[in-house]
Design a protein around this nucleic acid. Sequence first.
RNA 1: CGGGGCGUAGUACAGCCUGGUAGUACGCUUGCUUCGGGAGCAAGAGGCCGGAGGUUCGAAUCCUCUCGCCCCGACCA
Length: 436
Amino acid sequence: MRLTRSLLPTIKQNPAEAQIASHRLMLRAGLVRQVAAGIYAWLPAGWRVLRNIAQVVREEQDRVGAQELLLPTLQSADLWRESGRYDAYGPEMLRLKDRHERDLIYSPTNELLIADLLRQSVRSYRELPQMLYHIQWKFRDETRPRFGVMRGREFLMKDGYSFDLDHAGAVRSYRIMMLAYLRTFQRLGVQGVPMAADTGPIGGDLSHEFHILAPTGESQVFYDAAVETIRIGTDDVDHTDPEQLDRFFEAVTTPYAATDEKHDLAAWERVPAERRREGRGIEVGQIFNFGTLYSELVGLQVIGPDGSPIAPNMGSYGIGVSRLVGALIEAHHDDAGIIWPDSVAPFRAAILNLKQGDAATGALCEQAYAAMPGRALYDDREERAGVKFADADLMGHPWQLIVGPRGAAAGTVELKRRATGERQELTLEAALAHIA
RNA sequence: CGGGGCGUAGUACAGCCUGGUAGUACGCUUGCUUCGGGAGCAAGAGGCCGGAGGUUCGAAUCCUCUCGCCCCGACCA
């Protein structure tokens, strides 16, 4: 995109409404604008980031055999009523009426709907196991939205569901998702530490939350310092091989790590004192196994090999996609602005034309811009160099291609890596090779 | 939902106590100069002072009600 033709409103001053770094930077870098408490408009650059994160999530779900579908944001309240969950879920659920006075709800989660879908279309044990997911906007009527997109009322979430014939199968699905999640966070350039977690209102007996360690996190977490250095070659794990899967799961869940609800003092005492860490975490995902609870609530059954009905064992798996935008910024920023991981950056590179109107400089910029279709932001504004440098740092493009009359005369550009600040003078071809 | 704070130009704020022509900085527009890390000078544009009632000759300012936003806590992807 050309900056002069883009809705990319950067702000120099800190907006008063934003207290934490990620919220401040998202507003200043022109990623979002607030519409109401906890509700945001995603501007073009922010939407690109959101899509990029969703795409990584999608690829890693697909890789372990989960199928993507799309469930609606609105549902009839009937299903929730019949299952007794309508009143159980509480005021966090947004309820509304249509013109016929029928009760609708804006989905906060989809265990019931998806179990009901399978009830309608799955009959035999031969059709299981299955894993299904979607990436969709959710609404929760939070009592106190805060920290920008980190705790919004409307948020984008990947929610996935597994259906297995028995507990052993469900545990395998759970572990496969653990693998998919750790691969996802790794690709997003953050460490999502799996922590033993409470199951909350969804219910169940097995759950992990994934936390990005950050002082601004909302959750109190306790962990063995070993989790900070644990490196699992997740790409080497074959999720279809139960033995490899179990070994992997063992390795990532052995060091002590728990949220405050699940903090176990006895186990904590067994962690060597010098390795005990107490801190804050941003919860970016959670996985559950809840057995046959929801299958039974909606009457989901398949006919087993011996002709008798089986209630499938379900798990559910969530990743807060929009929350991750904030969490990634919390993990990757400095005083000048955002430092996007390559995998999610809205633009791979910014082209900074330091002398708008200079023919040679302009020509070189155009050449660079044409070489990176759809991937570069061309700062073609009539602004002084300093303004362009500052905005590029703020927006956090992984690479800055700095083109000025000095270099243009010599046929070179300057390439800056945002993360390290490292710069080098190169020919355009060499610079493009680095960026690619 | 308990506690606290704040609503004045696109952004950040002053003015309010003590009522009397709505201001400052940044941003924006135009011109000239400048031009590799948020330039200088000059001239401009931009406000239902969150909303509704009230008090008063007169309300951004005082009173009442209301709506919204932020922060701490409790609760939650």
